[in-house]
């Protein structure tokens, strides 16, 4: 059984169908890059996986937890998949440490000392152990995004969804965030990332999904997809003619 099973997923906004029957199975430890033009539905797909968007048809399950739109099922699902956003979305009224501790104590009811130890460990892991007491507005974009990664990791998810996590960063800050992701991939974390970092996708990912007009248009190992794109749409997207 696959870790993440996406079966015939459809999603419409009114009459506008943005996902037109997506099938994708992700095995444990896989790193999947989802690429495609804006409007191709890649972010929507990612947001459906942890229930930030409701799906119109089809089913999604993560390690046996079904996506069902009620608070109990969503919580169970979200404990299994963490999510990292383009805009970081750190809680501005809490320190970096507080950000990483909050959901542990509120959702998992972890004792304070334990949550703090975990927070320190996770901040160390992303290279920000010394920023425990810093507020988000005292951190650079790259540091904020690394705190966001630590915050997601502290919930010990079995998979991470990354929604264009480097797109809001200045170019010189992209590398530090990607280095963290690369490390996670090496440690065997299951990752699904919507990204525009083609070089990163080529180097790190086990499979690349090219989305076009709400469908999985092409899928395969990065060396195949990037070197021999089969469809004209992907060739065009990659800038080959």
């Amino acid at each position: 059984m696959s870790l993440i099973e996406i079966t015939e997923v459809r999603k419409s906004y009114g009459t506008n169908e943005v996902l037109k029957g997506i099938n994708l199975d992700v095995e444990p430890g896989e790193v999947i890059a989802i690429i495609g033009k804006s409007g191709s539905g890649k972010s929507t797909l990612l947001r459906c996986i942890n229930g930030l968007e409701t799906i119109t048809q089809g089913s999604i399950s993560v390690a046996g937890a079904q996506l069902i739109d009620d608070e109990v099922h969503l919580k169970a699902l979200r404990l299994k998949v963490g999510m990292i956003f383009q805009q970081f979305n750190l809680f501005p009224h809490l320190t970096a440490g507080g950000n990483v501790m909050l959901s542990q104590s509120v959702v998992k009811k972890t004792a304070k000392a334990e949550a703090e130890a975990m927070a320190r460990k996770m901040l160390d892991r992303v290279g920000l152990g010394h920023k425990f007491e810093a507020y988000p507005d005292e951190l650079s974009g790259g540091q904020q995004q690394r705190v966001a990664i630590a915050r997601a990791l502290a919930m010990q998810p079995i998979a991470l969804l990354c929604d264009e996590i480097t797109s809001a960063l200045d170019p010189e800050l992209v590398a530090e965030v990607l280095a963290v992701v690369r490390e996670l991939a090496a440690e065997g974390m299951t990752l699904l990332m919507v990204t525009h970092e083609m070089k990163f996708a080529r180097d790190v990912c086990s499979r690349v999904v090219f989305m076009h007009q709400g469908r999985v248009h092409e899928i395969g190992r990065p060396e195949e997809v990037f070197a021999n794109p089969k469809t004209p749409e992907l060739q065009q997207f990659l800038g080959m003619h």
Binding site: L74, K75, R78, G82, M83, Q87, M155
Partner: peptide, 12 residues
């Protein structure tokens, strides 16, 4: 994004 981030961390 604050709602989304806290929701994706499992908060009710």
């Amino acid at each position: 994004g604050q709602w989304e981030a806290s929701a994706s961390l499992g908060m009710g």
